[in-house]
Design a protein around this nucleic acid. Structure first.
Lengths: 201, 201
DNA sequence: GCCATAAATTGACAGTGTCAATTTTATTCC
DNA sequence: GGAATAAAATTGACACTGTCAATTTATGGC
């Protein structure tokens, strides 16, 4: 009978993370408090302490599940992408673009240094995983050529993250996003292609 | 006698912002609470309400002063930069790189959508000002050519912000930042130059 | 059935943001 | 100058939060 329905609540950890995700989508990270989550899960205000010692631990646990979700989306899309490294890179970036646009609160939480512990092992593993999706393809791309793959990888990651983050903040509103009829994320990808071209990749 | 030394405290607003900045540098935005700021300014816990109706208003006011500071640094450096648009763009980007590296908590606050009100006029004015520093030069650069200046401007802004933000989070630690002896920010600037080259700018 | 242990509850504490009522200070008007 | 008025700061209270200690409840092994 697995592990469900055993204790008072029956695998409360999952229920807490579900409630936390709902609150995150509704109100952003500030709405994800220990007491609020416990309330939503129908449990006493101090119950979560058995599964998450801190609010920080709770938010970190939530971020871990978000990374796993992103990872699944990326893997699923890469299965439908050809073997061309450039196309695969662009597939990953499009995954992030969509994720940031559809779930701004979730995306923003991932990079909140104060409420999420990026040093813990669980987070590092997930960050490595998503980072490598892009870095590995770039590695294939620049193999043998005299190009620093890390610079390209960091440049691409930076542009991707920066665009999503600034768009969430609203930095590009009333400035450029609406004037041009074309799709801005696609235009950015196209522009970054010129870097690949320049290095003869 | 201007406006100083008139009321109980004598232009408390400035004192509150000074205290807020100190707390921000020490503990990050979570340390900048109304009561903590009031305590540091040596005033009762509800005194700030006369100058900032909200915690959000306090943090927004602080962010405004930070943008003014950045603006001053940029202007000062641009005076010492030649008329070449590319060089001027790179000067601005270097300003942000340095600011983010030297004052991570300040930089992070600027883009916190939940605690800072980016819709208010004071913020929009400052954001426009710093955005235009890069956008104007790009405008000069692409004048007459068949290039969408907004795409280039947004691309550059995104890469700049993304790198600073991810570096603060620690995303590039133990991955690439230490392996290469060369300066990563400069390498990113150099890489972005290939985009200018590609468009014949 | 008993015991040890894990899980959840209850109650308390200090801290927070925000508001209302009050007192203190400064400005304005006569 | 002195009184009236407005602004600024204080005090006290409220609901809320995270965290901890003590307690009660449920589970699995013997």
């Amino acid at each position: 009978m697995a592990k469900a329905k055993q204790f008072h609540h029956g695998d409360l950890k999952r229920a807490l993370l579900d409630a936390a995700l709902e609150l995150l989508d509704e109100q952003g990270d500030s709405g994800v408090g220990i007491r609020a989550v416990a309330r939503k899960a129908g449990v006493s205000h101090a119950a979560p302490v058995n599964h998450f010692k801190d609010r920080r631990a709770l938010l970190t646990g939530l971020a871990v599940t978000l990374f796993d979700d992103i990872q699944a989306r990326i893997s699923e899309r890469l299965e439908r992408t050809s073997d061309d490294p450039v196309l695969r890179i662009e597939s990953v970036v499009r995954c992030f673009f969509e994720y940031g646009a559809n779930h701004p609160h979730r995306y923003a939480l991932l990079w909140r240094n104060d409420v999420v512990d990026h040093e813990c092992e669980a987070m590092r593993i997930r960050e490595d995983a998503v980072y490598d999706h892009i870095c590995d393809e770039i590695d294939r791309l620049v193999a043998g050529r005299n190009v620093d793959k890390h610079t390209v990888a960091i440049g691409l990651w930076s542009m991707m993250h920066g665009y999503i983050d600034l768009k969430i903040v609203g930095m590009f509103e009333d400035r450029a996003d609406s004037t041009s009829g074309e799709d801005r994320p696609e235009a950015l990808l196209k522009m970054f292609r010129t870097i690949f071209d320049h290095y003869g990749l």
